[in-house]
């Protein structure tokens, strides 16, 4: 099967892997990893400028040129906070139209999304002209509602943020892939290693967003390359179509 382009908010991206920029031991390590990932889009968070320690000013310089910057509303627990963060993000990051990874958290222990708030904020930000990429639970009903509200992609989790537990509910992700058809489904959060990424892509996900799996690896640049290959091979396997599973053996060589 021929692949279709990976389009978010009207722009085509050459890689189906979106990477985060958090938790890296240093900016040079981050830069190497982002480059090795082959990704064309990187998420960032927004915080107060630390007037005593100005080193984060060089953060922007460490993002490989040409990558689209996707600001997030991480650490927002209310619709109000998320809206405010999105509007601030629009001032800092020059995307036209403005992009936002919309995250409204329900609980600091699990970092699971508050999907009721998410629907409300998505509606408002879409109206304001944002390209909204909502981080959501692996709930097909909410995913469909987000699509209907005009989200530019739907981003269900594989497992909780930073947990590295991999894909816990492939059944729900598959249902979401069958339900959400007009915008990309990007599995966001929970991928721990390359096989997790392949599995997600083999199901037919349009893309994957990950951060910790790369940043917390002992060799982030190497893991970033592994993830690049895993996303590509998983996608190819999905397009090729897997063989049927059988309960008994079937000889590969012809019988005598």
């Amino acid at each position: 099967m021929k692949d279709k382009p990976f389009i978010i908010g009207g722009k085509e991206y050459a890689s189906r892997l979106i990477v985060g920029s958090g938790k890296y031991p240093s900016l040079p390590v981050m830069k190497d990893a982002l480059t090795s990932s082959g990704s064309r889009m990187v998420t960032v968070a927004l915080r107060r400028v630390d007037l005593k320690d100005r080193s984060p000013q060089s953060f922007y310089e460490a993002i490989p040129k040409g990558m689209t910057i996707l600001p997030n509303t991480a650490a927002c627990y209310t619709v109000e906070d998320a809206l405010k963060t999105a509007r601030i993000a629009r001032e800092i990051v020059a995307n036209d139209p403005p992009l936002i990874k919309l995250e409204i958290l329900g609980d600091p222990k699990t970092l699971l999304p508050d999907t009721i708030g998410l629907l409300e904020a998505t509606k408002i930000l879409v109206k304001e002209g944002f390209v909204v990429l909502p981080y959501t639970n692996d709930d097909p009903i909410i995913a469909k509602k987000l699509e209907d509200l005009g989200a530019a992609a739907v981003m269900p989790l594989a497992s909780p943020i930073g947990s590295g537990m991999g894909l816990l509910n492939p059944y729900n992700i598959q249902l979401i892939l069958e339900t959400v058809t007009s915008v990309p489904v990007i599995v966001d959060a929970g991928v721990g290693t390359a096989s997790d990424a392949s599995l997600v892509m083999e199901l037919g996900a349009d893309g994957i967003l990950m951060n910790t799996a790369i940043a917390e690896s002992k060799n982030p640049a190497q893991m970033a390359q592994a993830m690049k290959l895993a996303v590509e091979s998983g996608r190819l396997a999905y397009l090729a179509g897997r063989m049927p599973k059988r309960r008994i053996a079937s000889p590969s060589s012809p019988p005598q």
Binding site: V44, L46, R48, L51, N72, E91, I92, L209, N211
Partner: peptide, 26 residues
């Protein structure tokens, strides 16, 4: 404050100013 309005925005006694930037995040 929109960027084009920085030069027209006067800071007075007691005002609250927040300056935000991008940092690493997922």
């Amino acid at each position: 404050v929109r960027r084009q309005d920085y030069e027209h925005t006067t800071i007075e006694e007691g005002d609250q100013i927040e300056i935000l930037q991008m940092i690493g995040g997922g």
